[in-house]
């Protein structure tokens, strides 16, 4: 592979992403490590959304649903384990757990099932209908979480001790960062392989010309549904990590602002680019931190900046730096 400007920028991004928390550890600044962990997790949620949004051309405005499902998988399983209450006793015993690996598997399975149901209905529509209906289904889950009292309702659910991972002290900030960063790396690698595979090409083909895809014998609906499910699973994994980062999960993770933010990570960085979500999440967190420390109403300049990016800088951060338009 030749070293074009985008590859160079991606390399610099990856190096900075790992170097900043390591330097912060040396300077004993755990808060910066936490910010970097947040970047890793948001980037992972963005990688999930980018799969359908960037490569599939499907504007899902409801990915907070999957982010929140991942979060609640962590919260609910941990709360049952910590209270020694089994989730179910008959017909067979299911107990809670504080093992991240088990939590992740549950998050992946539940989000896949929910995405299958939502995708089967929403993917029958397209364009503006798809945007509004994905939003509406996410709101449905949001209101359900608020009005269902068993797991905290509107107040949310605390995870008193961060869940564990074999051979790792997850309470140590740099260890938890390393875990999140490695997971992000795996997800990005998986995503890169997936979009270059036959399946990924078919997905991009279905975006560019669905009629031709149908003509060559590939049903766009099925390809899109599988992509939607995989995308939801990646975002749910990020949600499980986010709940563990905050040791707290609440309906806020399911709210439509969250869907909008995940979309912003993807757009700020550059739609349909592998490193776009990482660049976007990093930029968002840096802006939030810098603007937020100067002015209480930091979302106002953020909104203005986002408007400028949408109206004038359409390739996102990576696109502007790489100096080339990519037709996504």
């Amino acid at each position: 592979m030749t070293m074009n400007r985008e590859t160079l920028i991606n390399t610099i991004l990856a190096v900075a992403f790992v170097a900043v928390p390591v330097i912060a550890m040396g300077m004993n600044e755990p808060f910066i490590i936490t910010l970097a962990t947040k970047v890793a997790i948001f980037a992972m949620a963005g990688v999930g959304l980018n799969l359908v949004l960037g490569f599939g051309g499907l504007v899902s405005f409801g990915h907070a649903a999957f982010f929140g499902i991942g979060g609640y998988a962590a919260g609910i399983l941990a709360s049952h384990a910590l209270n020694y209450e089994p989730i179910m006793e008959s017909p067979f015993l299911i107990e809670g757990t504080t093992q991240m690996i088990v939590i992740w598997i549950v998050a992946l399975i539940v989000s896949a099932l929910v995405a299958l149901a939502i995708g089967a209905i929403t993917l029958r529509t397209s364009g503006v209908y798809f945007i509004m209906i994905t939003l509406a289904f996410a709101q449905m889950i949001y209101y359900f979480a608020i009005s269902w009292p068993a797991y905290g309702g509107e107040d949310g659910l605390s995870i008193y001790v961060r869940n564990g991972f074999p051979g790792l002290n997850t309470l140590d900030p740099i260890s938890f960062f390393a875990l999140c960063a490695v997971m992000l790396g795996i997800v990005m690698l998986f995503s890169a392989i997936l979009i270059r595979s036959r399946f990924g090409l078919a997905l991009q083909g279905a975006r560019q010309n669905p009629q031709r895809m149908t003509a060559v014998g590939i049903a766009p609906f099925r390809i899109r549904l599988v992509a939607f499910v995989i995308s939801a699973m990646i975002t749910a994994l990020a949600g499980a990590l986010y709940a563990d980062l905050n040791r707290f999960v609440s309906p806020t993770m399911l709210s439509w602002h969250m869907s909008g933010e995940i979309m912003i990570f993807v757009i700020l960085g550059g739609v349909g680019r592998l490193f776009g979500p990482l660049a976007g999440a990093a930029l968002y967190i840096i802006l939030e931190h810098l603007l937020g420390s100067v002015w209480e109403f930091w979302q106002l300049p953020l909104g203005v900046l986002l408007l400028i990016v949408v109206l004038f800088a359409r390739g996102g951060l990576v696109g502007v730096l790489a100096g080339e338009r990519k037709h996504a």
Binding site: I264, I267, F297, Q299, L300, L302, G303, L307, V310
Partner: peptide, 22 residues
């Protein structure tokens, strides 16, 4: 496209809500 419309009007919400709070 609709994606740009969604994002720009989402940005407008941030501006309106935060401006009103201000």
């Amino acid at each position: 496209d609709h994606l740009d419309q969604v994002l720009a009007t989402f940005a407008l919400i941030l501006v309106f809500s935060e401006g009103t709070r201000w």
